[in-house]
């Protein structure tokens, strides 16, 4: 298979950056936003026995972090295939 065209490479990279930016916004909002900056405001609501802000700070943000990485993996693997830059079978390995 031929190497990807430079133009398509640029488009691939732009899309990659877009995904990363969107996911980092989520990362920032759940941790720095909900868990730190607006924690007292969120504490007015409750989630069972938790104040909501406290829950984000000690539980929720961590669950969202895990979800962010798996969403990123799914998006990037799909993007790699669409632009034909995914790793071929047998690539990598022995070093």
């Amino acid at each position: 298979m031929a190497e990807p065209e430079p133009q398509s490479r640029t488009r691939y990279w732009r899309r990659n950056l877009l995904y990363v930016e969107l996911l980092l916004v989520v990362w920032f909002v759940v941790s720095f936003g909900c868990g730190i900056l607006f924690v007292d405001e969120l504490d007015r609501w409750r989630l069972g026995g938790f104040k909501l802000g406290f829950w984000f700070a000690q539980q929720g943000s961590i669950y969202v972090f895990v979800a962010i990485i798996f969403v990123y993996v799914l998006l990037m693997n799909r993007l790699d295939r669409r632009y034909g830059v995914d790793e071929r079978e047998g690539e990598g390995g022995d070093r």
Binding site: P4, D80, V85, E91, G92
Partner: peptide, 11 residues
Amino acid sequence: EDIRIPRGAGE
């Protein structure tokens, strides 16, 4: 440029 695309890792 090269490290930005996955294809070719290990080569």
